[in-house]
């Protein structure tokens, strides 16, 4: 910010001074969109925030107190994280070697990328139904295991933690892979060639050149995968453990607001959820800002 100078007769017109900072009438174009987001996102959010401090009982912090004092609700935080973090780690972790192998063009690559979009078309319900039927005790998966002699009795893969994790991987892996793939193809191939002429074998090239350049993108991918997995809601209800082993925080919030009609509690839960998620994102972003981030092209 510049120091505000005392007014002088030679002071240029306000319009000119604004123009100097890039402010002109074009900026009015931002207003409709920004106002819509403020009205539909910021206002409800702040309204929800103040509502969360006005519970029916228990004083200002009653709703928050209620959440943390009830073990079932409190444990939903742990359950959310224990699903979201492994799911995002698996999705990002598996994406890296696969997209590294596939960074070059080959026949059928476009088809493969298009196939990876398929899980996005499935939607939560078909995925959940499919998981119930395919991995269920009488499903093809257990049939096959039995046939191969890998399991004598059906393995319980649905209606529990594994089921939800499976649904998070089926819907989340293509997302992570496509993002990783696009970050990786942003790294100029001549960098690896240069490293190889300098005597680096494939592991050294990956370790010293590709991976450091990919890491910021991977962290963004992790963040976005995490946000997706963190908000897991429909699949946790459909393939999750009915006894509460996969009672994630979004279910907790939903039940409070729209099943018990305790809006204050529901909003409080939503705020807790937002804060937890932002903490993870801020942590990853801080870590990321300490890394190199910039051009990944051939020219510096």
């Amino acid at each position: 910010m510049t120091v505000v100078l005392p007014q002088s007769p030679s002071r240029p017109a306000l319009r000119h001074r604004l123009a100097e900072r890039g402010v002109d009438r074009t900026l009015l174009l931002v207003l409709p969109g920004a106002l819509a987001v403020i009205a539909l996102f910021c206002y409800p959010f702040l309204y929800g925030l103040q509502l969360s401090f006005q519970p029916a009982s228990g004083g200002v912090l009653g709703a928050y107190h209620a959440f943390f004092s009830e073990p079932f609700a409190r444990k939903s935080i742990w359950q959310t994280f224990s699903l979201a973090i492994p799911a995002s780690l698996i999705n990002v972790g598996v994406s890296v070697p696969i997209s590294y192998r596939m960074r070059r063009d080959f026949r059928g690559k476009r088809l493969l990328l298009a196939l990876l979009v398929v899980p996005i078309t499935l939607g939560t319900v078909l995925t959940a139904e499919g998981i119930l039927e395919f991995y269920g005790p009488a499903g093809w998966f257990n049939h096959t295991l039995n046939l191969l002699g890998l399991a004598s009795s059906p393995v319980q893969l649905t209606m529990n933690y594994t089921g939800v994790l499976l649904s998070l991987i089926i819907s989340g892996f293509p997302f992570a892979y496509l993002l990783t793939h696009s970050y990786l193809s942003g790294i100029h191939p001549s960098l690896e060639k240069a490293a190889s002429t300098l005597g680096a074998d494939w592991w050294q090239r990956f370790r010293h050149i590709t991976f450091p350049l990919l890491l910021p993108g991977l962290m963004t991918t992790f963040c976005l995968s995490f946000v997706m997995a963190f908000a897991v809601f429909p699949s946790a209800m459909m393939v999750g453990d009915p006894d509460g082993k996969t009672h994630v925080i979004s279910i907790e919030a939903y039940e409070a607001a729209l099943e018990h009609f305790d809006y204050a509690q529901g909003c409080a839960d939503a705020m807790i959820m937002t804060v937890l998620m932002l903490v993870v994102i801020v942590a990853v972003t801080t870590l990321r800002s300490r890394l190199y981030s910039g051009s990944t092209g051939g020219k510096g």
Partner: peptide
């Protein structure tokens, strides 16, 4: 031999400097 074992130096058209 693969490129890393030949031990030649190479200057690329776009330089291919490691930006990080």
């Amino acid at each position: 031999l693969p490129p890393e074992k030949r031990g030649f130096g190479m200057v690329f058209q776009n330089y291919a400097l490691f930006p990080h």
